[in-house]
Structures are given as structure tokens and as C-alpha cells.
Nucleic acid binder design. Structure first.
Lengths: 178, 178
DNA sequence: CCGATTTATATAACATGTTAAATATTAACA
DNA sequence: TGTTAATATTTAACATGTTATATAAATCGG
């Protein structure tokens, strides 16, 4: 039941006033409220809350879904490429591939020219899974777009892309240490 | 060192062409490239890459830092409030508090009126840690602001806030399950 | 006052993120 | 050729995210 009654329980602190934090009073350390990582995190959380239940119904995590999706865009992948494309670190990907392979959703082979390179591809079972979930996922996307506005969404995409580009290019190492 | 090292090794796939994904060609399922969670994730990663090394020097994780920062904004916190303010789930927070307490950076007490509510506060050691790191953190922030532009950053903040607000209000539960 | 329901916090179990190190294979080079 | 460096992937160790459950204390209903 989604009664909006539980907010009161949180705001009714008896002894201390955390309102000072949740509200807007201090003028010295407001950087905590204006935290870019936190803002990005909260936005992501809000978005993922729309997709997680859907994936969870099919016993898939967000990352497993990203991997499967990526595998539908080409015939074979090397692990490194897959990690880059799906924004998953290699150690995580290694575990995810093990899981997905056990479930028969992906296949692994080895490249002839380079024996250390894996050749990863999706199986028919994996494609079935995609086909089963994709329409629902698309609908959630449409809902989000409708709720937020296509134009603002486009602006947001642009800014996020530029931010990652702007910071990702010059890493914190060779910068201007003083 | 400065060899025009071959990322060609990745693009010169012998059997398949992952270039189709890493590059920009496919026109059927590009929703994967236009993934909002991924865009938010990548932007967050780019930002965090600027802060992580700094925190890591003092053996702090991003989340531990968020908790410490939050604790400087009020005299006492209940665990639930702390979790909300720092955007950390209660299970994670529970573990983090255990760690920070062992390191002497925070203190835990119990409220008189409500014996199940914890009273969490930062210790002098914790404040020292904050004082040590905060200036560097502020400088990283200034760098990011300078690189991306204060105006665009403000716009981004606004959009992120609106997105979380727009989606967070109406949760995915009471929606249109069909 | 007693029992059932809520609230606050903690714990369990599993998956992922992060960092470092191990392993295996290829490339570079003396 | 043989030794070393670079590359691709995996594993290890620890911290966190996610979901479900447990524990304790407060609140409600009788």
C-alpha cells in the first residue's frame, strides 16, 4: 500500500533536529547537499527503481541485462570489448559471464589467432529472454520519457555525455597538481 | 611508451566486427547506447574518478566519506536519518558504522526516549579526518566546475533533481501493471 | 495488562564494485 | 633462442548494493 503517511514518522525526530540537514540552514558546508555524485546517484536510483522489478521477475540483475543486451548488437565479443560497452569492470564481468553461462544464456569460445581472447556470444535461450523482456523495458522507457519530457531528457543526455567526456579525457593523474 | 599502440588489435577482429558496437553504425537497437542508467553511471564514474584517489589515500571509501560528511551537519543522527541523508541503504550503513566505530571515527549511543534508536555522532578523530581531506575535496570540485562550466553544472543539477523528483514521487508499484 | 502490528536497526545471502595480484599468451628484443 | 615486457582474462579480498529476514522496542487494540 502506498500511503504517503510514512514521511511523518521520519520527520518527527524527538530530540535532535536532523531537519537542519534535510532542510536548508547551514551556510558553511552546503557542498554536501550540492554533491554531484549524490545527485547522479539519486537520479540513477530513481530510474532503476522503474526497471529493477521487471528484471527481477526473470532473475536478472541490471548488469546481467546490460551484458545480454550488448551481446545482441554483434555476433561475437571479446571480454574486454564487452566490459567497455556495458560499463562493467572486468572482474565483475568475469563473474557475470560464469553465471550467465551456467544458465545457458551465453556461450564462450576461444579465438584461434589469440588463445587468451574469449569469444562470447548470446545463445538462443538468451535471445528468448531478451525478446521476453525487451517490450516491457521499452514501455518503462516510454513512461519515463513521457513523465520527464523528451526535450529535457535529450538535454540531460547531452549534459551527461559532455560531463563524462570532459572529465574522462583528462584523468586526475596528469592534471594540474600544484 | 609512446608507440601508436594498436587499439587496432581490438578493432581488427578476425571473425567478427565489434566495431559495429564500439563505433557508431547499428541502427536497429541503439536504445542500448541511449540508456539513461548507463549515461548516469558513466557520468558518475567520471566524477568519482576525480575523488576516489584522494579518499583512498586516507583509507576511506566514497560511502564512508559521505557518512562522515553528513555527521558534521548535526550533533546527533539516528541511523535511519543518516541513511536517508547520505543515500546509503540501511544494511550497508550498518556495516559502515561498525567499521567507522572500530576506527574511532564515530560514536554510537542509544536514545533515552526510544531504546531502539541509535544516536550516532562523529568523534574528534573523525573531525580531524574531515578537516584533513575537505580542502582537497573542495579543490577537486572547483576543478570539475571550471572544466565543465558553472552554468552547465547548475543546469545539470536542476535536471537531475527534477528527474529524481519526477520519478521518485510516483513509484513503479501503483502504476499501470497490465 | 496482554497480544498483534508497526518501527528501528541489524544480520544473512548473494551479486557487484574496487583494487591488487595471478595466470596465460602474445609481442618485443637482445 | 630465450628473456622480458605487454596484453587478455581470471581470481582474491574486501566493501557495498539488493532483497529478505531477524531482533528488539514502541504502539495499538482488546
Amino acid at each position: 500500500m502506498g500511503r504517503p503517511s510514512r514521511k511523518a514518522a521520519a520527520a518527527a525526530g524527538p530530540v535532535v533536529e536532523p531537519t537542519e540537514v534535510a532542510g536548508h540552514s547551514g551556510g558553511e558546508m552546503r557542498a554536501f547537499r550540492r554533491s554531484l555524485p549524490m545527485a547522479l546517484l539519486k537520479a540513477r536510483e530513481a530510474v532503476m527503481a522503474r526497471f529493477r522489478p521487471l528484471l527481477h521477475e526473470h532473475d536478472l540483475t541490471e548488469q546481467q541485462w546490460r551484458v545480454l543486451r550488448a551481446l545482441t548488437t554483434a555476433d561475437g565479443f571479446r571480454a574486454g570489448e564487452l566490459a567497455r560497452v556495458s560499463s562493467i569492470s572486468m572482474p565483475s564481468l568475469s563473474r557475470i559471464l560464469r553465471t550467465l553461462e551456467k544458465r545457458g544464456l551465453i556461450q564462450r569460445g576461444i579465438e584461434d589467432k589469440d588463445l587468451r581472447a574469449a569469444q562470447i556470444s548470446i545463445t538462443p535461450s538468451g535471445r528468448d529472454m531478451i525478446a521476453l523482456i525487451a517490450p516491457h523495458s521499452e514501455r518503462r522507457y516510454a513512461e519515463i520519457t513521457a513523465a520527464f519530457g523528451a526535450d529535457r531528457l535529450a538535454t540531460l543526455y547531452g549534459l551527461l555525455d559532455e560531463l563524462a567526456d570532459c572529465l574522462g579525457g583528462a584523468d586526475g593523474d596528469g592534471g594540474d597538481e600544484e
